[in-house]
Simulated assay, not measured.
Amino acid sequence: MIWNIPNILTVMRLFAAPGVAVMFLYFNRPWADWFALLLFSAAAITDFVDGYLARAWAQETKFGAMLDPIADKAMVVIALLVITGFSGMNPLILLPATIIIFREVFVSGLREFLGAKAGLLKVTKLAKWKTTVQMVAIAVLFASGMFEHSLVSGVAGMDAALVDQIFAGEIEDDFNIVRAYWGEFVTWHAGVALLWGAGLLTLITGWDYFAKARPFLKENDDDA
């Protein structure tokens, strides 16, 4: 184990993964959404930085190569569980999240089964794009949760007629509920679209890994 800067960043990203969930245990919303968004975004940035520094400084290590995908998967899976929870198990979130989590577990199990031959399942450019889209989708959905909670808090105690007047511009919007509404509307639809795009990339890359591993799975069957 070598403690260079790229590896330290990777370890920090790994510990940031459960930290996203912890934000919702110790802080009330929308502060929890804000802190989760900032923590997740900062950790996602390190995913690019640590790899770039490792290559630029010739500090690529086996420890970093092993831990990097684990940190990525931990971040994505834990964040998706949190988002699925505060979305009320919305099918538009639940289905792509299930696809993504299933694929991550499946590929991890495939790598473990292949053992020394797992090197054939090298990370492809499309898989890197998949991870990027996943992280952007999650960040946008955290922002959506923040706007949603602000909107709910802003209209608390108001009747429907008063809300309609605010949206019509007849009454001053002292609680910024119109901005919260449009912020939630845009980020929700963008986040869902990105998450479904990530789900599609997840299926494609998962099938690609399985296709590459099939000859070796057959070989193992014959040997058995």
Rank of each mutant, 00 (worst) to 15 (best):
R103E: 07
L92T: 03
V105W: 08
K122T: 10
N176D: 12
A139N: 05
L39D: 02
A139C: 11
F15A: 11
P91I: 05
G197I: 04
L141T: 03
L67T: 10
G115L: 07
L194S: 02
F175P: 00
P30C: 11
L194F: 13
F147R: 01
K130S: 01
M1V: 11
M66A: 11
G64V: 10
R55G: 06
G145L: 05
M1Q: 10
G119R: 07
G206L: 08
M66D: 09
W129N: 10
T46G: 06
K218V: 12
M158P: 02
F86V: 04
K62P: 02
A190G: 06
G183P: 06
T202S: 14
L126D: 03
V152E: 07
F40Y: 15
N4I: 13
W129A: 05
F113E: 08
L92A: 13
H149F: 09
L195H: 01
E219Q: 15
I177D: 03
L114H: 00
V22M: 13
N90H: 13
A44S: 15
E60S: 13
L94D: 07
I204N: 03
A168P: 04
L81R: 01
D173M: 05
R111N: 01
P215T: 08
I100P: 02
A168Y: 11
A198E: 00
L195F: 07
F147N: 00
G64P: 06
T132I: 12
E219M: 15
I2N: 14
V107M: 04
A21F: 14
M66C: 06
D72H: 12
A213Y: 04
V76C: 04
I8L: 15
M135S: 06
I101W: 03
V105E: 01
F142E: 03
L9C: 05
G88N: 06
I8W: 12
I171D: 04
A180K: 05
K130T: 02
L114W: 06
E170N: 14
R179H: 11
E219T: 06
F35G: 00
I45Y: 11
A224R: 14
D208F: 14
L121W: 04
I166K: 00
L95E: 04
L203I: 15
L53C: 05
M146P: 02
M89G: 08
M158C: 07
E219A: 14
G51V: 12
A54E: 05
L114S: 01
V178C: 01
M66H: 11
F15N: 12
L25H: 12
K122F: 07
N28E: 15
A74Y: 12
L14A: 13
E148D: 13
K73A: 11
V76N: 05
A116V: 13
A79R: 02
L201M: 09
I2M: 12
K73H: 08
S144I: 02
V192E: 01
D72Q: 10
P96H: 03
T131K: 00
T131G: 12
K212C: 02
V163P: 00
V186C: 04
E148K: 15
E170F: 12
P215K: 11
S144E: 09
L37C: 10
A127N: 06
L141P: 00
D72N: 08
I8Q: 07
